[in-house]
Design a binder for these strands. Structure first.
Lengths: 230, 230
DNA sequence: GCGCGTACTGACAGATTTTGTCAGTAGTCA
DNA sequence: TGACTACTGACAAAATCTGTCAGTACGCGC
């Protein structure tokens, strides 16, 4: 199974490089000939990897990762299906789409009888009563968190008082009725939660905030009164 | 990649047989020698398949399935993580455990940097306000649905009136605050929803109900007023 | 246009892996 | 005990993978 493992390594290498890499460089790193590398690229593409190659430039992999062969139990299949259905119905934007796609991807490689079992999994997700925010905002928030970028908020707090805030978002909490951004607030100079349904306007900034999101989460979790919330 | 494909086929074959199958029969069906089959079994076990083999008996696979190598996008990874977290926190019983396991399984095969990204996915699920039912009941209901077995219910309807019912459960709906069993009720001779928090006592019966759960679901969905609910 | 760097393909022989055969051990059931 | 089966080791044959070489095509800078 040396080849299978090498294919995995190749995907990881491509993931690490953001700029185009030449096939020659990849072949060198994997310690195989260029010809073999081209064959490996072809195999990965056949398996669904979105690898772009341009003559004179090199290879770029659309962000993603390869899962090796994996065993799941029946219960795990049901959990997977229910979870993806929940995300698809309750989050919105690109996350909903991703949940649908993930399920479709799994479904596509399953033998027919299992596919039927998956499609007919009788765990259903009820309709939402959440009416707070536009679906696209979720994507905006997620991107800001992932890239550690500041957000500009026109916010209305519990008392109805409006304010403009610059925040450092580091987590997004999904509650039954509402979504909450956990962030550092520059105005208050402290951690704060922002309910998505109280956001009047939101703008993604290119400015990076000066801490790591994981560090912020850790500090925030250590403050127990808040840590218990999520 | 002939071998990889054959391993997949082998798992499917094992899934189809409920009773022990001899290695010789499997080898014949796969058109390989017995020696090769033993090697394949060993490989699958190394990959995590729970295959039991007993001399003089044959092989049995603990219900499960094998996923071939699969590409996922970053968004799909986030959707997967959030979905599993939701199932783990909000369902209970064996389904929660399955969600945790599924995530752990995926996490285990990921390269370190992706594992970190998975662990630190900052989409969180809020605490539940559901206080309706014991977690084990979910498992009981799921099993009854999967096996198409009747359930005996001591139920208290909306007006508080208690009643004993024999039902044919075919779906389980997850709402924000409550879970609902969709079933055919022998007492009313009609479809009915049963809120899990109004169930006083529940017993799984060995008696099979005389229809297919998918047929019941279809009929039920076609009755639009109810179909809109879930 | 020309040269350079790169992606990509086909052919074929050598290297590597997989497979079959054979031989043998050990466990379970009747 | 005998029949049936899981499992392992060794080794040569078969199949697959790999490297080398030769060639085409595309984009970019000069």
């Amino acid at each position: 199974m040396a080849r299978t493992d090498r294919l995995l390594d190749l995907v990881q290498m491509l993931r690490r490089h953001r700029l185009p890499v030449s096939g020659e460089a990849l072949a060198l790193e994997l310690d195989v000939s260029l010809r073999t590398l081209y064959r490996d690229i072809a195999t990965l593409r056949a398996q669904g990897a979105d690898i772009q190659g341009e003559p004179g430039i090199g290879y770029v992999l659309k962000p993603g990762f390869l899962l090796p062969p994996l065993m799941f139990s029946e219960d795990e299949l049901e959990a997977l299906v229910l979870g993806m259905r929940w995300v698809a119905r309750r989050t919105g934007g690109s996350l909903s789409t991703a949940a649908d796609n993930a399920l479709a991807r799994i479904s596509a490689v399953l033998p027919k009888d299992l596919k039927d079992q998956l499609d007919s999994t009788l765990l259903l997700v009820g309709p939402t009563v959440v009416t707070d925010d536009r679906a696209e905002d979720i994507t905006l928030i997620r991107t800001a968190i992932r890239r550690e970028r500041k957000l500009l908020l026109s916010y209305q707090d519990a008392s109805g008082e409006p304010s403009d805030r610059k925040i450092w978002p580091f987590a997004l909490g999904f509650f039954d009725q509402v979504r909450v951004i956990a962030a550092w607030c520059e105005l208050r100079n402290d951690f704060h939660h922002f309910r998505a349904d109280r956001i009047i306007r939101m703008t993604a900034m290119e400015e990076r905030y000066p801490k790591r999101k994981n560090a912020l989460l850790k500090t925030w979790r250590d403050m127990q009164t808040i840590g218990e919330v999520i």
